[in-house]
Nucleic acid binder design. Structure first.
Lengths: 200, 200
DNA sequence: CATGTCGTGATACACATGTATCATGACAGT
DNA sequence: ACTGTCATGATACATGTGTATCACGACATG
């Protein structure tokens, strides 16, 4: 009944089913059985390819991160060539705000994972949690570069600026997910800060 | 065995047990049984005084909100008399950042409720969800007042400014809860924005 | 004194969840 | 052709959850 099968393909199929559920019903609803049904396989298979639920969650998270990375690269590229520090910073921060289906999906799902971590700090700890710090460092370097080209005033503190902006983007995303604001409104707020308080 | 009892007192006792659990173990861990144990009563009593779990959650949320309100008032008062728009805005935003035990508790618990709402939009809907909008309006008025006293540049948009700041405070709070930053660092970032990009 | 409502306990129910077990057909290597 | 590993299914198990039911003692009111 079952020939040798491409494990990676099956794992992808199942992990993406989880991400789909996390998008439409929330990560909390992504039970093993729900994932199995969504992927069109039996519960046993989900166990077979990912032994434990934690392993499945970690694998799906890795895929989610690479999706976000891809989106960022696409937005940087779409911001025009050659990229300037200003266009790069604007693109990265803007592409996080949930304005279209993809960014909403990513934001929703990331939020679900964040909740998981908050309620069970160690479970997902083996996953490089330094991700936000990396992004923060990268943005800070862009700001520094912008200071040298005169796009940003020299007396601004790049670390504090980027930390604040990332927190703001994060908070804006939450407000959009909570339905308090539209994605466009959130983007307008971000752009306002970038254009009036950061760049000259 | 049981004389007539002060219902409000018992309800307080139970609701605060829930908030205590939400603080120490996360709102997800606040099952009816856990709340009963924490409050030192039987499961039946939790049902008796709050029929359904949803009712208990709503009641506890109302108490949490009034606690935050009290904290805001205290911080405004502590900022010095007479209050200026600048001191009021700074106090309100600062007292939300999780720097001490109380603000951490409040932030953690609010975050739990926020997650609930995201995963089940209607369940808590009957609770006036307009709370954030109210705060936003209040802060925007303070900014406007600050513009007339010259504390804030006249060309700034009060609505966009306050929306961005609230989102930032929210995001900073998340980062502190997630352990990416200390409360003091978060507060420093907020103060930096207030002092260098908002107030003259 | 009788009676009914109040406060409380013990326990049952129905369901969902993650994980474990057992069985079995298919294919590969010998 | 035989045998063992692979892929898969069906099902069981232990646990936790919100809610419901039944019982019973205490007190207030008539």
């Amino acid at each position: 009944m079952a020939a040798r099968v491409d494990h990676e393909e099956r794992r992808t199929q199942i992990a993406e089913a989880l991400l789909r559920i996390a998008d439409t019903q929330g990560l909390q609803s992504a039970s093993m059985r729900a994932v199995a049904a969504e992927a069109g396989v039996s519960l046993r298979l989900v166990q077979y390819y990912f032994t434990t639920k934690e392993a499945l969650l970690l694998d799906a998270l890795a895929r989610l991160q690479s999706q976000l990375q891809g989106r960022m690269n696409a937005w940087i590229a779409a911001a025009g060539a050659p990229p300037t520090p200003r266009s790069v910073v604007t693109a990265i921060l803007s592409c996080i705000v949930p304005t279209d289906a993809e960014s909403s999906r990513i934001a929703r799902t990331y939020n679900g994972y964040y909740t998981l971590v908050l309620n069970d700090p160690d479970v997902l700890e083996k996953h490089g949690a330094a991700q936000p710090a990396v992004l923060e460092g990268f943005l800070a370097r862009q700001i520094r570069a912008a200071q040298q080209t005169g796009e940003v005033a020299a007396d601004k503190d790049p670390e504090l600026i980027t930390a604040g902006l990332l927190a703001m983007v994060n908070g804006l995303g939450s407000s959009v997910l909570g339905g308090q604001r539209s994605g466009e409104d959130a983007l307008a707020i971000l752009r306002y800060y970038l254009d009036t308080t950061l760049f000259t």
